[in-house]
Design a protein around this nucleic acid. Structure first.
Length: 357
DNA sequence: GGTAATGATTTGAA
DNA sequence: TTCAAATCATTACC
């Protein structure tokens, strides 16, 4: 391109704004006196004014003649360079932007939730994680679980459909603009670099639309997730069988109703509930905590219940001893009578009931 | 709708 | 971290 200044000089295109006019005036077609110049400019203006009156064929012919002109490539290069050095050099500084941190956050979140990226079983992993965070899933929760998965899958589907639409629209628009600019580059100075730059501008615009889509999708996932977690938080009464198992243990260990971790796990297993390491969400621990305090507050009220379970335990014990085997209740490291660790005994009449019976 | 029962959570002590 | 105690919030029953 170091040939350009020479070309500019030798072919009289120094007047960047009016190259045609400059050349016209320099190659001797203009008159040397003022009157001649006026006449010449008048002719050019006349030509410009009559362009609109030309037929399509005439216009095409003129365009073709212009494109075939021997000086056209040189002129085109010079004009492109001038253009590059002026207006577009300012825009050039905006290129090579670092990736948007917000967009990265959104992308990461969509990936983590299983909305973007490869299908991860319709978000079952996320649902399982959400459920685990609240203390586990029982069989009764499978309906909500699948509901969560179905809704997440819907969100995923909508997201991908919309994303595809945006990408298609972006490609169509880019192709259209590129074709337009290529076509126009035959009559005005548009370099391939400028077309490339225009394409990147279009992509930037479309990616900002995509970011909105990603943001909306993230919001939808968050709402779904919070609803699901709220649903987990809702109270579910234990079924009758589970309550009986827990009561049986409680009343048969009334002197020290503090099941060990192993015992809790075994009870949870029997009741069909899970035990979390975090006490806050440990259903068995909650149950025993509530039971202890409520029993202690109103022993009289629970007396009948205590007697009933004590009798049942006695019957079981008799039947077990008749079969010559050990007690079948969950492991009881802190069994009755052992009131260590300063825990208060809830011993009452019912504890003796087994003996009396 | 009112009330009791009950699972979950919070708070403070050990 | 566990527990007791108080409290909240939901469910079950009338």
């Amino acid at each position: 391109m170091d040939e350009q200044p020479r070309l500019m000089h030798s072919h009289g295109v120094g007047m960047a704004g009016h190259p045609g006019l400059a050349q016209h005036m320099q190659d001797g077609t203009a008159g040397s006196d003022g009157e001649g110049r006026k006449q010449d400019i008048g002719d050019i203006l006349q030509q410009i004014m009559t362009i609109t009156d030309q037929s399509l064929d005439e216009a095409q012919a003129r365009k073709h003649a212009l494109n075939c002109h021997r000086m056209k490539p040189a002129l085109f290069n010079v004009l492109c360079e001038i253009k590059e050095k002026t207006v577009l050099s300012i825009r050039g500084a905006q290129e090579e932007e670092p990736p948007d941190p917000q967009l990265m956050r959104l992308d990461n979140m969509l990936l983590a939730e299983g909305v973007a990226g490869p299908e991860k079983g319709g978000g079952s992993a996320a649902a399982a994680a959400a459920a685990a965070a609240t203390g586990g899933i029982g069989a009764d929760n499978s309906a909500e679980h699948s509901d969560y998965r179905a809704k997440l899958s819907q969100i995923r589907q909508i997201y991908h459909t919309e994303l595809e639409k945006y990408e298609q629209a972006c490609n169509e628009f880019t192709t259209h603009v590129m074709n337009l600019l290529r076509e126009q580059s035959r009559t005005r100075p548009i370099s391939p670099k400028e077309i490339e730059r225009m394409v990147s501008i279009i992509h930037r615009k479309f990616s900002s639309i995509q970011m909105q889509l990603k943001q909306s999708t993230c919001e939808a996932v968050m709402i779904l997730r919070s609803r699901f977690l709220d649903a987990r938080r809702k109270r579910r009464n234990f079924n009758k069988q589970a309550t009986e198992i827990l009561n049986e243990y409680f009343y048969s260990h009334l002197s020290n109703p503090y099941p060990s971790e192993e015992a809790k796990e075994e009870l949870a297993k029997k009741c069909g509930i899970t035990v979390s390491q975090v006490r806050k969400s440990n259903k068995v621990s909650n149950w025993f905590g509530n039971k202890r305090i409520r029993y202690k507050k109103n022993i009289g009220k629970f007396q009948e219940e205590a007697n009933m379970y004590a009798a049942r335990t006695a019957v079981n014990a008799t039947s077990v001893s008749a079969h010559g085997s050990q007690a079948n209740s969950p492991s009881t490291p802190n069994s009755a009578g052992d009131c260590s660790e300063g825990k208060r005994s809830l011993l009452s009449y019912s504890d003796f009931a087994t003996v009396l019976d």
